[in-house]
């Protein structure tokens, strides 16, 4: 028996050493794999990978999945992760999409002002790794319009678009918009997120199940619309649509042109009544 004890001890030590050695090997391989993955991903994606993104990537070595994971390279603002409680009631929308929505409405949307410059918007988009691209449409007669869009998107959002008009000194953001993924609760969630970010003096102009509008936002209006088939014409410039996009939520901030003051509304009501009188069957001359 006494001879067996050292033997058992040796076996235990050997087994332990073996297990430890295996673990080390695995860790080493794992690290090698991670490095290789990072290197490959860095080459294909073309940007540094944050450490927290590595776990997402290392679990999907398949190249297709690496490509699909490109949207996970966009940077989420960590300060917003707790704020999504604002949208708690919308259970059908993922936390990721809620965060994206708040990131757009709180960080990007407010950039549409008379004082913002193109570089401010590019900077913000770069901060979130959305790969902005700017098209400058200029001519000698009506100056320059810069269009800013992005190659990447925050999850659940797409088609970020800004139009910036130059002036002799400076310029003005004339239009800023993005779209949110369709869903049964998407419209309400977007309206809530947008409303929460508006100044106190913003006034609601239109409010129904598919459209919400505000005015009096320092010379701008904001509107949120659930797109229907008539909005998805292939003739629309910039954004590609199919019929599957019905229900997409479009969010826009743009320079006000018309007015929704009470006097204006009264006039419009009168004109709508006149219009209703014209709805008679067509006749042939």
């Amino acid at each position: 028996m006494k001879k067996l004890v050292p033997l058992v001890a040796v076996i235990i030590v050997a087994a332990t050493a073996f297990v430890l050695l295996q673990r080390n090997n695995n860790v080493a391989k794992h690290e090698e794999k991670t490095e290789a993955t990072e290197e490959r991903a860095r080459t294909e994606v073309g940007s540094p990978i944050d450490h927290e993104d590595t776990k997402a990537i290392e679990s999907s070595i398949n190249e297709q999945e690496i490509k699909a994971a490109r949207t996970s390279d966009v940077k989420v603002d960590p300060a917003l992760s707790e704020d999504i409680t604002l949208l708690d009631e919308f259970k059908e929308i993922s936390a990721e999409h809620k965060t994206s929505l708040l990131q757009m409405t709180r960080r990007i949307f407010p950039l549409a002002t008379e004082k913002t410059e193109v570089k401010d918007i590019v900077q913000a988009l770069n901060k979130y790794k959305l790969e902005p691209k700017v098209g400058v449409d200029k001519n000698p007669f009506t100056g320059s319009m810069s269009v800013i869009r992005t190659n990447k998107t925050l999850p659940g959002t797409r088609y970020f678009h800004t139009q910036y008009f130059d002036e002799e000194q400076g310029g003005i953001v004339q239009h800023l918009s993005f779209e949110f993924k369709p869903g049964t609760q998407s419209f309400e969630a977007v309206v809530k997120a947008v409303a929460e970010g508006l100044p106190a003096h913003a006034e609601v102009t239109v409010s129904n199940s598919g459209y919400q509008g505000w005015r009096n936002i320092d010379g701008y209006i904001v509107w949120v619309k659930k797109l229907d088939e008539s909005d998805l014409s292939p003739d629309t410039p910039f954004n590609a649509y199919t019929k599957n996009d019905v229900g997409t939520i479009r969010v826009v901030k743009e320079i006000d042109i018309h007015d929704h003051a009470p006097a204006f509304k009264a006039q419009q009501r009168e004109e709508i009544q006149e219009q209703e009188k014209e709805n008679e069957p067509m006749i042939h001359d």
């Binding site: 770069n126 691209k133 098209g135 319009m145 269009v147």
Partner: peptide
């Protein structure tokens, strides 16, 4: 963050 975006003339 301060990098310029790719800029294209005659719009996007």
């Amino acid at each position: 963050e301060n990098a310029d975006a790719d800029e294209f003339v005659s719009g996007l």
